[in-house]
Design a protein around this nucleic acid. Structure first.
Lengths: 152, 152
DNA sequence: TATTGTTATACTCTATAACTATA
DNA sequence: TATAGTTATAGAGTATAACAATA
């Protein structure tokens, strides 16, 4: 007998889960050397590249529920990596901006992330990586549409 | 400006995470109609298809830490879906076997899982699905090998 | 000594209800 | 009344140390 999970391996969902789980664990290890996790790195990435965006918009872009995002921003702010500034046009809202320290840390972490990416996709050609991304995109789209078709 | 996470989208790791996260959430919803979760379904699948396997071997196949697997088996046993039987050759070990009720529930849940799979991969040809699986397999292999090469 | 299953524990991620201050 | 950010809380998944029974 080969693998006990032979029939599960036929399912894309199972393969996605197994591969992603392992990859995310390793990626967290990469970021931990910078005092970051995947979520704080991703937050920093968006804030560095989109200065002044509102907190809620950043949370939405990352598909993180707003209540959970509050503590992420707290953490990054406490570490001096970004700052909350009152939005001029809406006193309820905060605009997020990366500090110089935050930008610098992000650049270093991004380099490590790219090295990780290269190791992750080693053996895949550029067209193969593009095809992988396209397949994941299509699956994402299918999942969005399923909201409607599932209930029938 | 397009998407706030534009640069993150260039990374396979990020795409894997976003797509898989959404898919797993939906898959849990599918299994919940059978009183199952992904983990209990996967356990049931292996036990149905590999009767008499030891608890530790099943946990290992699913990459679930043994302490965490105990409560999964407890749950399935309490629901009358599988049974623990003392292994004949090793008094420490338990052999897991699905009950008739467990087999029946698994068959029904497996059908729902296949429907979910079809919706998930809608728009992908069989060769494209195979290529996706191969890419995920290669990435998994790369992740295993990185254990060695990362530290250098 | 090492291994199987177990207990206890803790940490992260995720999800929801409800509050406040503004709009 | 709705929205932005917040607080509190609860559940699932994950990870580790340590124990009893057995090998």
């Amino acid at each position: 007998m080969a693998r006990l999970d032979a029939s599960l391996q036929a399912m894309t969902g199972y393969r996605l889960r197994r591969t992603t789980s392992k990859a995310m664990s390793r990626l967290n290890a990469v970021f931990s050397t910078f005092g970051l996790r995947r979520s704080t790195y991703a937050t920093l990435a968006i804030v560095v590249e989109n200065p002044g965006q509102r907190q809620g918009k950043v949370a939405e872009a990352l598909a993180i529920d707003r209540p959970n995002f509050v503590q992420l921003v707290d953490e990054l702010e406490a570490a001096g990596l970004l700052s909350r500034e009152k939005a001029t046009d809406d006193k309820r809202a905060y605009a997020l901006t990366a500090t110089p320290k935050g930008k610098k840390l992000f650049q270093a972490a991004a380099l490590a992330a790219q090295t990780f990416e290269a190791n992750l996709t080693r053996g895949l050609s550029r067209p193969e990586i593009d095809a992988l991304h396209a397949a994941l995109e299509l699956i994402s789209t299918n999942l969005n549409c399923q909201e409607t078709t599932d209930g029938q």
